[in-house]
């Protein structure tokens, strides 16, 4: 685990750009890989059918519709969510190339 220190920028409130162009968790400083690459590749992810995740209000009768939760492997804070059709690629957010 590293310190968040002085961030060079942010990709989101929970994901910053640390020294050396690395994506980091802003809560604990955990390294999330190169900022230019998809930080989600280095995050924990839980993918479950919506109905299982959210209960009756989210039950649309289709198990292929999933909720993805991306969390920090260091401190477990939830960094991002996506709804997706199972098998669709994760969305990519990244800072400008420097």
């Amino acid at each position: 685990m590293s310190s968040t220190g002085n961030l060079a920028g942010r990709i989101s409130p929970g994901v910053g750009v640390g020294s050396g162009g690395r994506a980091v968790c802003t809560a604990c400083g955990h390294d999330l890989g190169p900022a230019a690459g998809p930080w989600k590749d280095h995050a924990g992810v839980r993918e479950v059918p919506l109905a299982q995740a959210g209960g009756e209000a989210y039950d649309t009768g289709d198990d292929a519709v999933v909720l993805r939760q991306f969390h920090c492997p260091g401190c477990a804070v939830l960094l991002d969510t996506e709804t997706a059709m199972r098998g669709d690629p994760a969305l990519v957010d990244r800072p400008a190339a420097r």
Partner: peptide, 10 residues
């Protein structure tokens, strides 16, 4: 900030 962000709708 400069950067790119994605979204998807079904």
């Amino acid at each position: 900030p400069d950067g790119s962000w994605q979204s998807r709708q079904y």
